[in-house]
Design a protein around this nucleic acid. Sequence first.
DNA 1: CCTTCGCGTCGAAGCGCTTCGATGGCCTGC
DNA 2: GCAGGCCATCGAAGCGCTTCGACGCGAAGG
Lengths: 333, 333
Amino acid sequence: MRTVTIADVAKHAGVAVSTVSYVLSGKRTISATTRQRVLDSVRELGYHPNAGARALASKRAKVIALVLPLRAGMNLPVLMQFATSVVTTARQYDHDVLLMTADEGPDGLHRVAASALVDGLLLMDVEIHDPRVPLLRKLAEPSVLIGFPADPEGLTCVDLDFARAGALCAEHLADRGHREIALLGAPRVVYERGTGFAERTMAGFVEAARRHGLQADARPCEESFDEVYAAVKLLLDERPGLSGLVVHNEAAAGHVLGALRILGRRVPEDVSVVAICPDDIAERASPALTSVLIPAEDVGRQAVRLLMAKLEGQTVPESTLLEPRLTIRESSR
Amino acid sequence: MRTVTIADVAKHAGVAVSTVSYVLSGKRTISATTRQRVLDSVRELGYHPNAGARALASKRAKVIALVLPLRAGMNLPVLMQFATSVVTTARQYDHDVLLMTADEGPDGLHRVAASALVDGLLLMDVEIHDPRVPLLRKLAEPSVLIGFPADPEGLTCVDLDFARAGALCAEHLADRGHREIALLGAPRVVYERGTGFAERTMAGFVEAARRHGLQADARPCEESFDEVYAAVKLLLDERPGLSGLVVHNEAAAGHVLGALRILGRRVPEDVSVVAICPDDIAERASPALTSVLIPAEDVGRQAVRLLMAKLEGQTVPESTLLEPRLTIRESSR
DNA sequence: CCTTCGCGTCGAAGCGCTTCGATGGCCTGC
DNA sequence: GCAGGCCATCGAAGCGCTTCGACGCGAAGG
């Protein structure tokens, strides 16, 4: 069974090859009767345009690259949701997704772009001083970044508004009358790596607390139970009046609850806890955590939309910050 | 800056286009001096072959599809390791990876295959009665499955040897002198979905226990703490002499330890626990779990190798089972 | 010395598609 | 009744690459 080409369709429908092409692309008007005849032939023969030929002729591969940081220690559920949402959204725009790992580095991006394998790039987990950023500026292919490098000038970046998320948590606690609050953040290495989002959360938190006249404290937090326990204990020792705790570290969130239980503090009676984490983690905790969710799906969808807009030559905002949403559950009052 | 084509390279090196092509593909002998001149030009001009043109002319896209079950509730770390290993291995064979979600179903596979977007397919998490299997048999493009459908005839399947893994656990416990053992498996839905690996583990476990004259018991196990606790309690009530427990459920593994602690059984003094799970989970538990690991990386690498072999027209075994390895840690004696 | 062979290279024919300019038929308006 | 215009369709020229057959030349063989 030889594969069906556009010429087969044309012959079957009794029209020229170009007519079939125009029916399929809609780039020229074709009479309703011809159009129907062609579409029938397409269906009957089971025609699928050859991707390579199309890419060659039209200079559009209809494929975008998704560059994921597939190193260990990522927030897997969020990453997965994000990837799923990117693939699904891309399909809605009739595009496919080429999966790449960050470890190919700038060369990998250059390769897929220069070979016209992909029309555009989506990079996740961009760091403050990301070696790929200068390349992206040079590339003819449009790109969208998840996260913010030091200088987003000339790029297109999407992210959750982490500063706002931090602030939202502080405000929530302020509204409930808490006067002394603290934030436990990501592991120290995350700050050192300079991904940016962790710092921005802290900054937003501290700023909002200050604005509301709260006494606030923010520090990194490791992920093992023992270290979380030690951190929580230290915090409570130093700040006996502490009654509100924000945890921006999904691995640690559960452990914080465990530590508080062991330390004899009830949640939420003695200490209110707010987490910045995916909903499923917040819901599964006990008590269920009041949380600000990381809207991975929104981010993915939005990123693809922006990329598609750029592919069509539209200009898009350099920076898109997604508004965080706080869901109140059992762990705060 | 127009993109560099093979014609540019040819002109720059003072040779014919076809010569450049042969230098790059190695399909005909080219004298060392010419070869070097061409390679120099390639480097100097920064030439990258156009993927579409190459695919069109050679009928090889140098892309494989990776179909992941991006629904929730998967074992994310394993899935990620697997995906990473697939991408990395594919790159070693100079191939790229197109990411697809299972929810496009058979039509999606047909689409990418018929459009020659990909040369081969890698499907993860194949189910016993998978609707995609009949299609794969028909497709001209080769494919490799992770997991086993009911009838693997004519397909190429790779998986951990789960039966062996179950047996290994039973044998480990038998060697240590345990006489009454049990296995807590995946949630009930997994068995109902019929992915196969869960059943095979159970079967291997039961068979090995029987062979060693042990009293054995195997049942599904849900993932929430409360349900795990109930299951463990029921088991201990029914089988007071139970001293060895195998857990094939990474979400439940930690909870089992918690439940045993609450029920006053020390691990490993009173009950030895063996898990079938990724190493990181086993190591993070306390006490660290003796475990049989799911070698996601091996599976990915092996799957890509098989696919590449098929792409080159070699015949490969229908079934490849990866030998499980047991790592002894603190939870068993 | 001439033929034969093989090595290294070239030229040209596609691969299947998009797109541009051309064409022919038909309607409109004066 | 005819010029002008528009609509629907066609034909052909590439897009950048691979690959096949051909060719020229020096070495080997008779």
